[in-house]
Amino acid sequence: MTGARAIARDLWYLPTSASNAYLWRTATGSLVVVDPGLYGDEATVLGAIAELGGTAHDVESIVLTHFHSDHAGAASALAEATGAQVCAGFRDAAVLRGESPAPSPDLTAAERPIYESIAAAHPENMRAPRCEVSVELEHGDAVDAGESMIVHAVAGHTWGSVALHLPHCAAVLTGDVAINGPGGRTTLGPFNVDRDRARRARRRLAALDPRIAGLGHGPPLLRDAGEALRDATDVFAGPS
């Protein structure tokens, strides 16, 4: 079993090897995959789709909340396996295509040893994966024709970060604007290019007053998500 878990009607949470993927079935029956994970995690995603009674050809879109490899590394392989279009925020799309360099995060003192440890153990995961993005997302775009998944631009973690709002089920998919951090606390994600902007983005998502939040890492919030996002800590904060 791959472990896909329903968190709302037609919305599933799927832990991958280093982050979280989400599967959403649209009103027309097609599937949207959000953040398929590291290279190799495409097999986990395809296995979950099969368990839900679908096939690779049901995947219409692969949406990337940002370019980091733990979220986007499997996108190219999954697109090849499914024929789906890849969608990303317009500034991150250029990084994924190799047209622009990946910006370095502005690390705090608390983040630096964590970042260096990951870089030493998995240097391949610190490079932006290459992927042909065919749809560049901007704030207010609808991922589907029924306008059931709305794009929110949330620059700060990366310059092209996006979050996704599903108003019909009072859910948001935050990417790394918010994660389930140490001790199970909801916190701002680490390794941001602009921490203040990331904090403001988190507050904007809280203002949507979602009931459910699918976070970038760790279990999703299944109730009172808006309150949890408003009260989120920043456990990685510290002098840069």
Rank of each mutant, 00 (worst) to 15 (best):
A6K: 14
D10I: 02
L11N: 03
W12M: 11
P15S: 07
P15W: 00
A18R: 13
R25P: 03
T28F: 00
T28L: 04
G29E: 10
L38F: 05
D41A: 05
A48H: 12
I49V: 15
L52Q: 04
A56G: 07
E60C: 09
S61D: 14
T65A: 13
H66K: 09
S69G: 03
H71L: 13
L78P: 00
A79W: 02
T82K: 07
C87S: 09
D92W: 03
A93I: 12
A93C: 08
V95L: 08
E99M: 11
P101W: 04
L107F: 07
A121P: 10
E124A: 15
H139E: 08
A145W: 01
G146P: 00
E147D: 13
E147W: 05
V151C: 06
V154Q: 05
V154P: 01
G156L: 06
G156D: 10
W159R: 05
A171V: 07
V177D: 01
I179G: 04
T186I: 14
R195N: 09
R200C: 15
A201C: 15
L205W: 06
D209P: 04
D209W: 02
I212N: 12
A213Q: 11
L221T: 04
R223W: 06
A225Q: 11
A228G: 07
A232E: 08
T233H: 06
F236V: 01
S240L: 12
